[in-house]
Amino acid sequence: MHEAVPSRRSRGLISWVRRGGLSTLVFFLPVLLSFGLFSWWPILRSLPLSVQRTNFLTTDWVGLDNFTRVLADPLLLTATLNTLWFALLALVFGFPVPVILAVFIAELRRTRGLASALVYLPVIFPPVVAVLLWKAFFDPSPTGVLNTILGWAGLGPLSWLNDGDLAMISIVLQATWASFGTATIIYLATLMGVQTELYDAAETDGAIALRRFWHVTLPQMRGVLLVMMLLQLIGTFQVFTEPYIMTNGGPEDRTVTILMLIYRYAFVSGDYGRATALSLLLAIALSGLSWIYLWATKRWSTS
């Protein structure tokens, strides 16, 4: 019995190597190291940090105190509502744009390559440069770029980021502009894979373009659409760069987002316990959202 165990084990190891286990491990190692070191380990480290108070010299366990202080922050509700508002606006305005563009570009024959390149162009801008560029466009004076354009049509001038009601919409405008290129390219690739015989069949049946899109194109894009929507939702709940650079939360906290609160806790107040507590709450909320989303769309996406 005692001798049988190691021999069985070594036999298991040999067959594991024979079945390609070693090469699997070698290929898996870079992923393991890079994500482990830069993602998973920090995530694990943040768990204790959220129930501690530390100044990086001495550390005290404070139980749920950090969570209590996060929930007591009057700005938390403001930031949550602002973030939801941003996510909703981005979904309503930002999500359909690349789908429509991709369908149009797919119809092109000779200029499809050029059109894809042009659509992708905004993505080439480094994010901070693009945000600063738009910040200048949003100049509230009558001589600002967007106000000049509005002036040609006899409209405006608008205060853009300086107007509490308009600030978040302006930010969504910029964010949509900056990100629609990538989504369009992905949808375009999906459309190229749409089975053309279905179009032929639809045409034989005399279906008009809009119905063709609705009954043939959309169902075939469904899987990709669902994934893209989930990724967008997760992305928009983490919006930071755009409002941070353009408004830093103003005017009157109308564009403060959850991530901006986390940033302020950590880097302005030096309160890492509170920052990780809110990060964890957001992570839990996003995981929950993803789970519900996948559960709700499971049937539809596999049909």
């Binding site: 994500f35 830069f38 993602s39 998973w40 920090p42 995530i43 480290r45 943040s46 940090l49 530390t54 990086f56 994934v227 989930l230 990724l231 997760i234 992305g235 983490q238 991530l259 986390i262 950590a266 890492y272 920052a275 990780t276 990060s279 964890l280 957001l282 992570a283 996003l286 995981s287 993803s290 789970w291 996948l294 499971k298 596999t302």
Partner: peptide, 24 residues
């Protein structure tokens, strides 16, 4: 479907990783 779900959840979890803070 199971593998699709884990593939989908992975980016969600990794996205969250961007939020969490590193201590030296």
């Amino acid at each position: 479907m199971k593998s699709t779900r884990t593939q989908l959840l992975a980016p969600a979890v990794l996205a969250v990783a961007a939020l969490t803070l590193v201590t030296g």
